[in-house]
Structure formats: structure tokens, C-alpha cells
Lab assay of single mutants.
Amino acid sequence: MDETGKELVLALYDYQEKSPREVTMKKGDILTLLNSTNKDSWKVEVKITVNGKTYERQGFVPAAYVKKL
């Protein structure tokens, strides 16, 4: 869990989004878990840094590609 009590997951593999509802992640990324009720895909939040500014983006990733921490 992070400092706000949200559950975290670790990306086990790289994943490139295939639709606007998904998010891209790299192996080793730590993501905030938002919903894990679907056995196939979990909703997560990723933090992306562009030019020194951090943005948050929500979307789905394959459940088999992440592990709860």
C-alpha cells in the first residue's frame, strides 16, 4: 500500500496499450490498483513524467501482467 492506503501492483512485463481504455507500463513499474474485480484486466493508475511534470492516467492492464504488493 502507498502512503494514502491504496493498494499497489508491480508490473511483471512490459505492456503497450491497445486501446484508449488501457495504459502502457514497463516491467518494474509500480502502479496504484483501483479495481481488481475482473479476473482478466485490472484498472490501475499510472504516473507519467513529461518534461519534469507528473501526470496521472487511469486505464486497464492484463491482470496476469501485474502482481499485488
Rank of each mutant, 00 (worst) to 15 (best):
A11K: 03
F60Y: 14
E56Y: 15
A11E: 01
G28T: 02
D2F: 14
M25R: 00
A63C: 07
L12Q: 03
W42I: 02
K47E: 07
N38Y: 08
V9F: 04
E3K: 13
M25C: 05
P62W: 07
L10N: 02
L10Q: 10
L69K: 00
M25S: 01
Q58L: 05
A64R: 13
V66Y: 01
S19F: 07
E45I: 14
T54V: 13
K27S: 05
P20A: 11
N38K: 07
N38D: 14
K26V: 07
N38C: 11
A63F: 03
E22C: 09
L8S: 06
T54K: 07
G5M: 12
E22I: 03
E7R: 12
I30E: 01
Q58V: 13
A64M: 11
D14C: 08
V44A: 00
K43W: 15
L34D: 00
V9G: 09
K68R: 13
T4M: 13
L12Y: 02
T54P: 07
D40Q: 10
K67H: 09
W42D: 00
E17G: 15
K68V: 11
V66D: 02
A63R: 09
V61C: 05
L8E: 06
N38I: 05
L33Y: 02
W42S: 00
K26D: 01
K53A: 10
I48V: 13
L8D: 01
E45W: 06
K67S: 09
I48W: 12
P20L: 08
A64G: 09
L31R: 02
R57C: 08
W42E: 00
A63G: 03
L69E: 01
V61D: 02
N35I: 07
K67Q: 12
E3S: 14
T24Q: 04
K67M: 14
E7G: 11
Q16G: 06
Q16R: 10
Y55H: 08
N51P: 02
K47S: 12
I48A: 06
T49E: 10
P20N: 09
P20S: 10
K6W: 10
E7M: 12
K47W: 09
G28L: 03
T49F: 11
E56I: 15
D2Q: 13
K26A: 07
V66K: 02
L31N: 00
Y15A: 01
L34T: 02
Y13D: 06
V44L: 03
V23D: 01
S36Y: 07
W42H: 00
V61H: 01
F60H: 05
A11W: 04
N35R: 06
A11F: 03
Y13P: 02
N38S: 11
N35P: 02
T37F: 10
P62M: 05
L8K: 11
G28Q: 00
N35M: 08
P62T: 05
E17V: 05
T24A: 05
P20M: 08
T54H: 07
R21M: 14
Q58E: 08
G59L: 06
